[in-house]
Nucleic acid binder design. Structure first.
Length: 496
RNA sequence: CGGGAAGUAGUUCAGUCCGGUAGAAUGCCUGGUUUGGGACCAGGUGGUCGCAGGUUCGAAUCCUGUCUUCCCGACCA
């Protein structure tokens, strides 16, 4: 244990161990550029898996990928009043297009003669540039719907950043759709929420609550914002994905009209939806433990690692005679396998290192196993291991991966269930909310009450659930603050 | 932008109060012994002490200024 420098989380100081874990796990680090992050290769491999799984689901919905410009003319952003209000405070602005040698001989300076006539904004989101483009793509009802998505980076100059959860630059996908009718657009926004929820629960093994944002928390320029909310291991809420029904706001701002079957000009209806590298933060904070990352198998870049334990080259050769066929069979079954034959680290070091990286299943074989015809199989989620016969190991592993995937989800769901309570008394609420977890409360539906609660407790309405949570009934009641009537309970929590 | 803290080896930090040869652990390199849970021994590499002034025979240490980072608020996917 001599070399094992502090990885152990001080659970009460979650963000600190989280940073430590991530850096140690070779996922990402903060770069010299304020608040931007460097995602290291192993971390990026996780992001690539997220991308490919989501992309497949988008395409099933008829979505096509496209790419739009990084720089947005300042005037575009100001076309939609609420939108600019929401983003103006966090925009990076390009003002010049050239550098020159410093006349005083100190490196380079901005050339004052290269000032742009109109400043350009580095996209914080692409609604405006995309809608200015859609104007040229749409003239008839036959052009609709347009279902586009782009994978890109965006920049929001936040006051304070937090690795993965709120970096100045982040990677994401943003979908932007245009529809002929209100109903179709609303359905689409709602439908995308289901795609996100399905991905979160079945791929990331992260239970989420599907809901609607209150007007206060709504996206700038949207009529309705759907979201999925997840609970992290410290009881705080994290918004993991959003889908917005934008109405005709952007169509009107950018003059996007189409000629209907009835030969009338109408404004198109819009949606936008996105998830970001924040999902990587969600992944880590949902499943990881004191030993490092825990990855659900469907997202693990390495699903099975095989570690031969040997002293000499000859021993390794004997072991590989047994291990190579296993590795080959697993690969044929579509399982991502890595065999670590390196002699540069001891087995103990390798074990700990793959645990840090969250590899779901580890196989180890040494001289002892070779004699007995056995192999050691260890699972990351429970940190248990057993020695079993080599025969039929492939099927055991396949089943085990499924079981681990399910167990990750069950564990997270059990934690969430244990930390959700109903609350009808505001004084009790004030105390309970500081302990973390979600509180289901009645709310009178007014922004004033929500604002008051936020000021007094820092808690916000995470969402108004679309359906009753498992084990709860949807029923009317009275607002816990004002006593006014409420149709159903909403989810309150402290959020990231 | 308010309130706090910190900048010293690749990394984590000690040394600063009370000025006097630049330190530890870890990492990295070499050699040997090891290898079933982050091995051990020996040797080696590695720092304009954030930057700029000032005080002093002498500054990592004292003084002034400045820059940067982190934490807590306001803002947010």
């Amino acid at each position: 244990m001599a070399n094992f420098q502090k990885l152990t989380p001080r659970s009460e100081d979650y963000s600190k161990w989280y940073n430590e874990l991530v850096v140690k796990a070779d996922l990402a680090e903060q770069s010299a550029v304020r608040g931007c992050m460097v995602i290291k290769p192993y971390g990026y491999a996780i992001w690539e898996t997220i991308q490919s799984e989501l992309d497949r689901r988008f395409k099933e919905q008829g979505v096509k990928n496209a790419y739009f410009p990084l720089l947005i003319p300042k005037s575009f952003l100001s076309r939609e009043a609420e939108h600019v209000e929401g983003f103006a405070k966090e925009c990076a602005v390009v003002t010049h297009h050239r550098l020159m040698n410093d006349p005083n001989g100190k490196g380079v300076v901005v050339d004052p003669n290269a000032k742009l006539e109109e400043e350009l904004i580095i996209r914080p989101t692409s609604e405006t540039i995309i809608w200015s483009t859609y104007k040229n793509w749409i003239s008839s009802y036959r052009d609709l719907p347009i279902l586009c998505n782009q994978w890109c980076n965006v920049m929001r100059w936040e006051m304070r950043t937090r690795l993965f959860l709120r970096t100045a630059e982040f990677l994401w996908q943003e979908g932007h759709t245009a529809h002929a009718t209100k109903e179709e657009a609303e359905d689409y926004a709602r439908n995308m929420l289901d795609v996100y929820a399905d991905f979160a629960e079945n791929v990331m093994a992260m239970p989420v609550i599907k809901g609607v944002k209150s007007p206060n928390e709504r996206f700038a320029g949207a009529l309705n914002t759907y979201c999925i909310e997840a609970m992290m291991q410290d009881g705080k809420a994290l918004q993991a994905g959003t889908s917005h029904f934008l109405g005709q706001n952007f169509a009107k701002s950018f003059e996007v009209q189409f000629l209907s079957k009835e030969n009338k000009y109408e404004y198109v209806w819009a949606t936008s939806w996105g998830v970001s590298t924040r999902l990587m933060g969600a992944l880590i904070m949902t499943h990881s433990d004191d030993n490092g990352l825990v990855l659900p198998p469907k997202l693990a870049p390495i699903q099975v690692v095989i570690v031969p334990i040997f002293k000499k080259e000859d021993d390794l050769a004997l072991l590989m005679e047994k291990l190579n066929p296993i590795a080959d069979n697993l690969k044929k079954m579509g399982i991502r396998v890595q065999v670590d034959t390196s002699d540069k680290a001891t087995p103990g070091y390798k074990f700990a290192d793959y645990e840090l990286k969250g590899v779901p299943v580890r196989l180890a074989m040494g001289a002892r196993d070779l004699q007995n015809g056995t192999i050691e199989i260890a699972r990351r989620d429970t940190m248990t291991k057993e020695t079993i016969a080599i025969e039929g190991i492939e099927d055991v592993i396949k089943n085990l991966l499924d079981e681990i995937q399910q167990n990750c989800f069950n564990k997270a769901l059990a934690y969430r269930t244990a930390n959700i309570k109903e609350c009808d008394d505001y004084e009790v609420f004030k105390k309970e909310i500081t302990k973390g977890g979600f509180l289901l409360c009645h709310w009178d539906g007014t922004p004033e009450t929500e604002e008051k609660i936020k000021e007094e407790t820092k808690a916000t309405i995470r969402c108004i659930p679309l359906e009753a949570l498992p084990g709860y009934k949807e029923e009317p009641g009275k607002c816990m603050v004002t006593g006014k009537p409420s149709a159903k309970r909403v989810v309150f929590a402290i959020s990231y």
